[in-house]
Design a protein around this nucleic acid. Structure first.
Lengths: 198, 198, 198, 198
DNA sequence: GATGAATGAGCTTTCATTCAT
DNA sequence: AATGAATGAAAGCTCATTCAT
């Protein structure tokens, strides 16, 4: 147990480090030696944990998707109306982008932009399904309760993810004159207006 | 004159080809030999037109930004209300994404996701300003005429670009069950609801 | 005693497995982890039995040579003429190549083709002497009895081993249209004609 | 023309060098840097001539097979009897093994012993057919003229190649007490006895 | 005796870029 | 303006071997 838990910890450590490096420097400009060195491990040993760079990348996106999915699920389960949930999701997303920017940056800059890497094994949205599923549940329950307009799911999903992603991009590029939290309220409002039932 | 116009044509040909390759295969997986070969030119000669791969990448994004900016300007100049303009912009954007996907894909997958490359020379939004400027003009005139709510520009900009970009991503990943045009109306409506004055 | 016999069994198990893997996949493309895994043993423990990959290789060839030598000795001891012995040797060799191909394949593909590995410790024919010695005895007794022409030993030895080895190669490459046994008679005849006294 | 002939010369130089190194040190223990250095070329440039180590290996065996085939064809065309041709082939083979040992050593130690490498692209005997074809022609014409016994081709082929190969092996291992030429006559005689019509 | 994580040197291959022609 | 051979640094990955447990 000491054995396996130590190995588990080391694996976790690679995940954290790789996430940081990939999201900061990009997938192709981050090398395995970079990662190994920052973890404090030999290059050879890295491959005892992940059998290739691509496989590491795929495990990372699944890790992130589960994490994000869990955060949204938690919001979904609250006994509040859709408007409040929207605000909570925006707030949570921006908080993550501010405090753990690696995750969202990885999602936006590595996962979405490097098809070649996530090709096989991540067809469609498999690698990202926990997160999408939760968003779908949120939307459907809002429609069911009559709060949200019954529209195509992808129109709604694109709005949510594109909008939030776009803001985080602008933030990451240091283009926004204010911190993300500054925009929270107006964005939540915009989304609510866009989705609410007439 | 014949001289320089031939050179200009050759340069244009590199731009077109590189755009296609970068947007299809990504920046790092496209090599200079790839580009040169497809243009029908030697590798050495390529460097007579662009002094490095990075510089080519930067010229490309400026080329795209000008093109997109011009298309929006043309819409801005029409004597119609903001709601109609929104519909026209969405329509134009999706038409481009469908017919000349290279441009928008390049913007989303190469420009937005490879900081390292566009670092110096494209600080802030310089490389993309023609396009942003036009969007800003659209928004300001809508506010001035009382049609749109007076809100932070970036909240509005992020909505526009993030939303449209997100949809094109989903389309590019072949996740959308319908063609982009199918979503046009509902997306324009969502944007209008999000931005309109109360 | 239980101890050491268990160790002996484990060592035998490594030998058998390594023989199979080396002869199938080649020396350099077979790794110690490959062997250890197939034996059901840890990599570290492997080194308690053989102190290096090269040493394992050398022990294998000696193991094979002893085995082959013993089979020929047994034929040598039969009270029959040289012609019959030739047939018996050919038959035994092909039978082995058909039923335990590892041994002969190892001899042909690993031992004969990887000098670097068998360099020191196997100079000349030390690692293979039991087998050669027996063949020499066969030849000398045939000459002594007047059945075989008195010629240079190596001319005769090369004929024997080269011919049989060549056929097994062709067989291993699946080039022979028939099973080895099909050629047995004509090959024994060819060898006999080549060696017999005028 | 100057261009391409210079490139051709450089390619020839790689072939010669690689042949020497592979046959001396083995396929896996010879590295691309080894080859490049000995040719006086950068590692990168090597790949402008051969797109992989495996492909180099395959081109080498075809090069050798053509060469050997041509030498045998020349003998086949002489207006002499089969016995004389056998002597000529043995002599030619041993001369090559003595003066250009790389070729025959490569054939024996690299081609015959590294299936993995010559797998696809060299199925059956495609990579070696010019040489085999000539030997087949020799044999068939000997049978047609009534000089040689009509037997299975592979029995005869294995005798020829195995025997000669075996001798060269012994020679390469420095096991033969005499130079190859010493054995020439007796070997040609053995082969003739083995193959001749009764 | 047994484990398997860890090391580190080295391998094949790639590619932006240069430069003699 | 045009060619493409040449460079060299660096990348991803492998593997025999060691060693703390």
């Amino acid at each position: 147990m000491a054995r396996s838990s130590k190995k588990e910890a080391r694996k976790e450590s690679i995940i954290t480090t790789a996430l940081k490096l990939f999201s900061e420097k990009g997938f192709y400009t981050t090398t395995i030696p970079d990662i190994a060195e920052k973890v404090g491990m030999s290059v050879g040993n890295f491959y005892n944990y992940f059998s290739s760079k691509d496989i590491l990348a795929k495990e990372l996106i699944m890790y992130i998707s589960s994490y994000l999915g869990a955060r949204i699920r938690e919001i979904n389960e609250r006994p509040v109306d859709a408007k409040t949930k929207i605000a909570a999701i925006v707030s949570m997303y921006f908080e993550m982008a501010t405090e753990k920017p690696e995750m969202i940056e990885y999602f936006l800059r590595v996962y979405l932009s490097n098809r070649e890497v996530f090709g096989e094994g991540c067809e469609g949205m498999v690698c990202v399904s926990p997160f999408i599923t939760e968003l779908m549940l949120f939307f459907e329950s809002g429609v069911a309760s009559g709060e949200l307009r019954d529209q195509d799911f992808f129109s709604a999903f694109g709005l949510f993810m594109g909008y939030l992603g776009g803001m985080v991009f602008l933030f990451g590029e240091k283009i926004l004159p204010e911190p993300l939290s500054y925009y929270e309220a107006s964005i939540a409002e915009n989304i609510y207006h866009a989705l609410k039932a007439p």
